[in-house]
């Protein structure tokens, strides 16, 4: 059998096996506990009956995730540029960045709701705060790790600081930036979900997946709750794949990390 066929067949088999075991566990539970672990079939059914609600909630979560993620990318880039200017700037700001990273922003969700308003504004701010740190740290690292020989070459050409930044430091920082971006992309949907869980609102747009999860668990609609979780997984998958694709586009021609993808 060809490698390609195996690559598809084997994960499919694993998936089928997991579903079968899952179903078996459901059957093995005593009748009064079975509601705690809905069967895959029941979850699929919940997808059908709650499709509209889940799609709307997913859309709202996506909005929050995208808004927070994008603004984190843009703002972190400019902060990284500032940090890369001198090590003095770095030592003065890094400790506070660390503190920001350690701060469990969720605790402040209630305050955030009062400041920014529940729903999209709070959700995107929480996502922003969660995505920000890995982006700043990685991009800064990239901007200051430029090959010394190449810096020398640009000095030889008597280039301006701006030319050096555009033609050398920024492109050289791209692999680091994408490392940060990949981490942020996995955090963004989860950040938006958690944000929505703590600062979501049914007002206006009807809330996101986190808010929907609260409703389903209060109504004891467990198959629908599982469907909500599955929707979040799909969202995360789409987010991560999009960033991986971007990263591939930007780096595969020249970066070592894609060395053996184009023999």
């Amino acid at each position: 059998m060809s490698r390609r066929v195996l690559n598809i067949l084997l994960p499919a088999l694993t998936g089928a096996l997991v579903l079968a075991v899952w179903h078996a566990i459901h059957l093995a539970l005593s009748e009064d506990l079975r509601f705690l672990l809905p069967t895959p079939g029941a979850i699929l059914e919940a997808f059908r009956t709650n499709g509209d609600v889940l799609a709307r909630a997913a859309l709202n979560t996506t909005k929050g995730a995208l808004l927070g993620f994008t603004s984190a990318v843009i703002i972190s880039f400019f902060l990284a540029l500032t940090l890369s200017l001198s090590s003095l700037v770095r030592v003065s700001l890094y400790p506070y960045l660390m503190i920001l990273q350690m701060t469990p922003v969720i605790i402040f969700a209630p305050i955030l709701v009062i400041w920014a308003g529940a729903g999209l504004p709070s959700v995107s701010i929480i996502t922003f705060l969660i995505c920000f740190f890995p982006l700043v740290v990685n991009t800064t690292q990239g901007l200051v790790s430029t090959d010394r020989n190449l810096v020398e070459l640009f000095a030889m050409w008597r280039t301006s600081r701006v030319q050096q930044l555009l033609h050398l430091r920024v492109p050289a920082a791209l692999p680091y930036f994408f490392t940060g971006l990949r981490i942020a992309a996995t955090l963004a949907p989860i950040g938006a979900l958690v944000g929505d869980y703590t600062a979501g609102s049914s007002a206006g747009d009807g809330g996101g997946l986190g808010f929907q999860a609260i409703i389903y668990s209060s109504q004891a609609k467990y198959p629908a709750l599982f469907a909500t979780a599955a929707t979040t997984c799909i969202l995360g998958f789409i987010f991560t794949s999009a960033v991986l694709a971007l990263s591939w586009l930007a780096l595969h021609h020249w970066h070592e990390s894609y060395e053996n993808t184009d023999k």
């Binding site: 020989n149 190449l150 070459l153 030889m156 008597r158 492109p171 020249w254």
Partner: peptide
């Protein structure tokens, strides 16, 4: 006199992304 000089370093110092 920068315009009259060119430097070839021990490393090829090519920009890998170009």
């Amino acid at each position: 006199a920068a315009a009259e000089l060119a430097f070839v370093f021990q490393e090829p110092t090519l920009l890998p992304w170009l």
